[in-house]
Design a binder for these strands. Sequence first.
DNA 1: GTCTATACTGAGATAGAC
DNA 2: GTCTATCTCAGTATAGAC
Lengths: 181, 181
Amino acid sequence: MRGRLQAAAWALYAERGYDRTTTAEIAARAGVTERTFFRYFPDKREVAFDGSAEFMASFTDAIAAAPAGLGPMEVLLRAFRSMEPMLADNRAVNEPRQAVIGATPALRERQSAKAAAMTAALTQALRDRGVEAKLAALSAQTGMALWDHAVRAWYEDPSVGLGVHLDRAVQALRQLSAGDA
Amino acid sequence: MRGRLQAAAWALYAERGYDRTTTAEIAARAGVTERTFFRYFPDKREVAFDGSAEFMASFTDAIAAAPAGLGPMEVLLRAFRSMEPMLADNRAVNEPRQAVIGATPALRERQSAKAAAMTAALTQALRDRGVEAKLAALSAQTGMALWDHAVRAWYEDPSVGLGVHLDRAVQALRQLSAGDA
DNA sequence: GTCTATACTGAGATAGAC
DNA sequence: GTCTATCTCAGTATAGAC
């Protein structure tokens, strides 16, 4: 049912836009009542981000699984690299999804919140490895910046793997931070 | 009127919490009707972030005003340092504000969106100086991470200035990014 | 599954400033 | 008279309580 509601929501969001779609319509297209919609999703926005919890869990699991003795950034970069297969699979799904999200302020706001939650989760995963709190937060935020940069570059140029783009992002970061303070 | 509505909203948010405060109550306390509230604020959340546009403008103005020939990170750090007086003034106002925001999911979500908007504004300000798009984005995101780190450290330890904490944040970043990729 | 509170929108009327 | 701010009224949709 979750999947049917999601499919119905995406179809309607794409057809008429998020704002012009009511939760009643989504439910009707899925063949259930409006109330059922809210049993599966806490609010109308959340439908657009289903699966983000699993994605986040993959990250934090990879961080927890990294060998001991690595620095925080090394741990994050390893985790990022481990996500490449999953990212490649989801690419075809994500691009139209992003188009709708980008065109809808309410969904962009939720996406910002999701990104913040992801950063918080990375921070916590690093702290669980013994990294001091503020350093963990700085690492997680910087890591997210690298991740963003690499993913964007990879979307532009898929001829090389995400790993290569991550290396380049790290290079760029080193140059940036080496500049005079 | 804007100020009266804001004051009323903050008083009620602090008294009974954001969720248990209705827009009608805010308006009533300010001596106007509910409809008037929505003439000044697009939604109930936005009252809590009044002035953020001006804050953002200060940042981007400082970036635009920086001398030519500096690298993106140098430009950002200069802008950050220029914000210290304003930050010191607002500290007494911001701390209780943050308490309410932190306790309210809806306001935290809006705050994430504001942070994302700030990052986007920094990115654009760097691009206006001729910095390439993805490098500008990476710089802005990394800069925000430094800013966060420094501000948090400064709240914990105000015995030294924000500038000192910024220097330390840059040091930490260098160590992080110097680690093996 | 039903009912209700409340956030938000739109159109038009009123009143005061200039 | 024009402009702008506020109010009045009527309504829809989300979300939560029961």
